[in-house]
Write a protein that binds this DNA or RNA. Structure first.
Lengths: 254, 254
DNA sequence: CCATCTTTGTGCACGCGTTCACAAAGACAT
DNA sequence: ATGTCTTTGTGAACGCGTGCACAAAGATGG
């Protein structure tokens, strides 16, 4: 998972569990695909398979929304699409600003999945005067001097930060001060925001490092399984008292 | 969090908890910053603040790696940088292929944070013959016909998929068949892979939808607090039998 | 060498999330 | 109307992750 919410009281106040909310978009995507194929109903088993989750989990997730299924039959696809859309707030339009129109910002602006579901790029903002006025994805880039004005006039409440890490916090502060209450952060920085503001982060570097960890573990286990205890004996000088943990021996210089 | 691991036995076989692994890159980033400022030692409290986590959590996380701190003093920054790097497998070089050189693929190829930490873009692959030979981020794009050969020759074990969703599974299958065992998927699709292959996904659309949910909830609570039960009574025609749930009233046309 | 002070490492309890397993509910055929 | 069959909705148990709170460990000063 390339993201992780930043603090927050955790428990949804007598509402839908956070883990469930995170899966609703997944269900919605699968249901939309079924809808386009004009499939009228779907069972929890089928839908769960399409979304890549356990069917019991899916049923429990839906149970938080209400009893929208019919026993013996399944769920009405169209109805469920609507209910989930409504629950996620996708029946309304969400204007979004993207701050930092570099490679990534431009890629996001061009991203089709953006507009497809209730989200609309209201403005592109960059600090570079050279960028101002340039068209990206059919939208003129505006200079960050007018950030507050733009947000106020467009009624934007969701901001996407794709700036270099050095200025991310500063941009974040200005967004929040201007009224933005949800931020999607692509900059590799820990943002601090006041209560009431949601931050989600997408960090490519972290994702790769997590993969590398598992990759190394897999390689280690494989080598261990093949070479047997031979290499282990050879590297037995190190002893960190943690017992025979199947990890790579520590070859710390000092 | 913009990501989510795709199935997997869950419990790390007598190793480091998954939640801890996901935080190690965060600690590493904070520690690297301290290292560059030549800070010799850091307390769990300070480091936790920099990484945006609870100090008790940080100490527990580190305890899984071993006893690398000194009571009364804190942690040696350089030593910890090395230990975490080693644990994450960043002391070795990880060649990575990016498949699908559209806007996003190009942005990733240009992303500096890529090379900074053990990861190296070994190849850029695209299915469009027009793209073949073009330079992106100083690397020549290669046609996907040679995917298997490229992966084999470069010893790549990590693949990044930035293709359109329609071909993502197909690309994934070829990557896996060619020997890739870790995949970072940016395409909005559920990938199915054999056991032993790790998939992490980054899904912009899902992140935005989660933000929209919270945004709607915030707006709803605010309106509720201000308008009281007035608006609720007006929209009371809908009744989903779930009782007086404190959510936004559904104003469904039909 | 002893006292004090700081900071780590962790035992413990709690809460969220997942999964199992099954009763309840409805469709459908006879 | 009754029985059978399918599928939902959920009670209950379990496991992971989090955070508190404190004892152990070491530094530091006298």
């Amino acid at each position: 998972m390339a993201t992780g919410r930043t603090h927050r009281p955790a428990t949804r106040s007598r509402g839908i569990p956070e883990a469930t909310v995170a899966r609703l978009p997944l269900y919605l995507r699968a249901l939309t695909a079924l809808s386009e194929r004009s499939v009228p109903t779907v069972s929890s088993e089928e839908l769960a398979a399409a979304a890549g989750v356990n069917s019991a989990k899916l049923r429990k997730d839906f149970s938080y929304l209400g009893s929208y299924g019919t026993r013996g039959v399944g769920y009405d696809v169209e109805y469920l699409v609507y209910q989930i859309s409504r629950e996620l707030g996708l029946t309304q339009d969400w204007p979004v600003v993207i701050v930092g129109i570099g490679n990534l910002g431009a890629a996001l602006a061009n991203y089709g999945g953006f507009a497809s579901r209730g989200f609309r790029v209201a403005a592109l903002i960059d600090a570079d005067p050279e960028m101002a006025g340039k068209q990206v994805a059919g939208i003129a880039v505006q200079h960050s001097d007018g950030l507050e004005k733009i947000i106020d006039e467009s009624g934007v409440s969701i901001g996407v930060i794709t700036t270099p890490p050095g200025v991310a916090q500063q941009v974040c502060d200005r967004l929040v001060a201007a009224g933005v209450t949800s931020i999607l952060n692509f900059a590799p920085t820990v943002l601090s925001v006041p209560d009431g503001v949601d931050v989600r982060k997408v960090d490519l570097s972290i994702e790769l490092q997590i993969l590398a960890f598992h990759e190394q573990r897999k390689a280690g286990e494989e080598a261990e399984a093949q070479a047997g205890a031979a290499a282990v004996a050879q590297a037995a000088q190190e002893d960190n008292g943690k017992g025979p943990d199947g990890d790579v021996p520590a070859v710390m210089p000092a």
